[in-house]
């Protein structure tokens, strides 16, 4: 059940916050924008599992919790497992009629960072999606292990410097490309898979509502700009996300039932990836003459991916 009509922002703003302040995420962190939006876009009771990561360590600083719903912290790899276990028990107890309120609408959500989604919890997520539990997995993709000091993850894009893939005289940072998690999850046959960004709040809220309403495992990758590790001023979180979506580094699209691809946002003016890269400290070294070819490579990859998405949208296969 949708909480409030999300026709416009004024109506959306009448929803009641269920993610409280005084968590210890960095000022300007996009994680909390995304989590707040998920919890504001529905009135349903939520059962949330969170992997170890920035979100978990910052929102459950003993003796405080920032969550106004049922929430569990579990190991680095287990958010999908915990959510699917809770969902299985809920279904069984509902069938037996042993719940306190058998008519209540309950939704199961798992949050993970990109480290726990792309690397450490990948097998568990894959298993939960294959078993077909009715839950929504949301990856807060900030492209590195930000909680432990910015190590590379398989979501770190090519050319970014991280503490374990540092740029210097012999290296331009990470040499490998980012894993295409959305395609992998779509290949599982998940009924709803999407990539969303907090700067496009409307498509994000609609995507969240769609995922919560869809029966079966849904996967959403959200772009979460990390001011600490991407090295930009905290006030620019939304600006950087704008650059990311307008340069098509992070195209916003959904895939329904593993094949029906819809592009949810087409920038009026597509900007060059150079503008996006230049705004962040982690790509500073790419603007040296010897590493210019990496920027060209990134631009080529982005163009190719956008071409592919457009063709897939047309082909409807």
């Amino acid at each position: 059940m949708a909480a409030t009509s999300i026709k416009n922002l004024k109506e959306f703003s009448t929803s009641n916050d269920r993610f409280e302040g005084a968590h210890t995420l960095c000022p300007g962190c996009a994680h909390s924008m995304i989590v707040r939006e998920l919890m504001n876009c529905t009135d349903d009771n939520l059962v949330i599992a969170t992997n170890t990561g920035c979100l978990e360590v910052s929102t459950a600083v003993y003796p405080f919790t920032s969550w106004d719903t049922s929430w569990i912290h579990i190991g680095f790899e287990n958010a999908a497992t915990a959510a699917s276990g809770a969902e299985a028990m809920y279904k069984a107890r509902k069938r037996k009629g042993s719940l306190k309120d058998n008519d209540a609408s309950v939704k199961f959500v798992a949050f993970g960072g990109d480290g726990s989604t792309y690397d450490i919890g990948f097998q568990w997520l894959s298993g939960a999606v294959e078993r077909g539990h009715d839950f929504t997995y949301i990856c807060l993709d900030n492209e590195n292990y930000a909680n432990t000091g910015g190590q590379r993850s398989s979501a770190t894009p090519i050319g970014a410097t991280t503490t374990t893939a540092q740029a210097g005289s012999h290296s331009y940072g990470k040499k490998e490309k980012k894993k295409d998690m959305i395609a992998i999850m779509a290949a599982h046959g998940a009924p709803y898979v999407a990539q969303l960004a907090p700067n496009k709040w409307k498509s994000m809220a609609k995507g969240f509502q769609k995922a919560l309403e869809t029966e079966g495992p849904c996967f959403i990758n959200t772009v979460s700009a990390c001011c600490t590790e991407w090295k930009f001023d905290p006030k620019d979180t939304i600006g950087i996300t704008d650059l990311a979506t307008d340069s098509l580094i992070f195209p916003i699209y959904e895939i329904i039932d593993g094949h029906e691809l819809n592009i949810l946002y087409r920038p009026k003016n597509v900007i060059k990836v150079e503008d996006y890269l230049a705004a962040q400290g982690r790509y500073k070294h790419l603007f040296k003459p010897e590493y210019k070819h990496v920027i060209e490579q990134i631009q080529k990859d982005v163009d190719k991916q956008w071409e592919m998405l457009q063709r897939r949208e047309e082909a409807r296969i």
Partner: peptide, 19 residues
């Protein structure tokens, strides 16, 4: 009252009631 600040505040610190 556009509520841009409300939707993007990461710390739930913008107080909005009745639009």
């Amino acid at each position: 009252d556009c509520q841009n600040c409300w939707v993007w505040c990461p710390d739930s610190s913008i107080l909005s009631r009745d639009k």
